[in-house]
């Protein structure tokens, strides 16, 4: 388990970043002069209305998109001057993703979904199988490992997606609207799980959502509007258990 001292380490840093999209000849700025630091061992939530630029910010901090201006650092590495190949490599080694749609391959069992990225990471077959099983146990799906997505509920699918991200043992975990497609109970389980991953593994968990239910579960909430951060506040969450992810 991660020592609590590293919980204060800044792992993601954006300095004066700007991003605009072109639609035809019209240039629409999405982010403008935004600066931000995100720390390890916490669940940081970016909330705001749709179109406020929160997903773009997530894409930039995770190395999925480039900035137009400014600088982006992740784990002390500058992302904005990496070429696409190097960015892929960085993501392979250090990042996990959880998306709103679970994006699981229909043909693969839960265990295979989790194993798949590990192979590309160069993990030997047997170890990949063991790590996949461990991650699925951690999200409470040990008994559902052999099932395909069609046989799993929405909440279970999202937990497989979390296990897939988790098994890579990433330092950075990004989640985009992870609860939007889930019912209240499943959403609760998922957000608790993300929170515990931050605490238990010392992972930097950055979550983007407009779901107000999540606010109470985050360590830090950033409110965005029109491409700027309006409010940055720390929640004093009640003690989250640091053992195991399943309540």
């Amino acid at each position: 388990m991660m020592p609590t001292t590293s919980a204060t380490r800044v792992t993601l840093r954006a300095e004066d970043i700007g991003k605009a999209f072109m639609s035809g000849k019209v240039r629409t700025p999405v982010l403008d002069g935004l600066s931000l630091s995100v720390r390890a061992g916490e669940l940081t939530l970016i909330s705001g209305p749709s179109g406020c630029g929160k997903s773009t910010l997530l894409a930039i901090l995770s190395g999925l998109q480039r900035v137009d201006t400014g600088r982006v650092f992740a784990l002390d590495q500058r992302l904005d001057d990496l070429d696409p190949r190097a960015l892929e490599r960085f993501r392979l080694l250090h990042t996990g993703f959880v998306f709103q749609g679970f994006n699981l391959f229909p043909a693969l069992t839960a265990r295979e979904q989790v194993e798949l990225p590990l192979h590309y990471l160069g993990v030997p077959r047997r170890e990949a199988r063991e790590r996949a099983a461990r991650s699925l146990e951690e999200v409470g799906l040990a008994h559902r490992m052999a099932l395909r997505p069609a046989e799993l509920s929405g909440g279970e699918k999202q937990r497989v997606a979390i296990a897939r991200a988790l098994s890579k043992e990433p330092a950075l975990l990004f989640a985009d609207e992870p609860t939007s497609a889930l019912d209240a109970a499943s959403g609760q389980i998922v957000i608790d799980m993300l929170h515990r991953i931050a605490r238990v593994h010392g992972t930097t968990v950055l979550c983007v959502s407009h779901d107000p239910r999540l606010i109470g579960h985050a360590d830090r909430v950033l409110s965005m509007e029109d491409g700027r951060i309006l409010n940055d506040r720390r929640e004093t969450t009640p003690g989250v258990p640091t053992e195991g992810l399943v309540p």
Partner: peptide
């Protein structure tokens, strides 16, 4: 039909070449 799954793999760092 599987483009979102492929995109997810790419997000996780699996290269386009693979």
């Amino acid at each position: 039909g599987s483009v979102r799954e492929y995109a997810t793999l790419n997000a996780l760092g699996v290269g386009m070449r693979a």
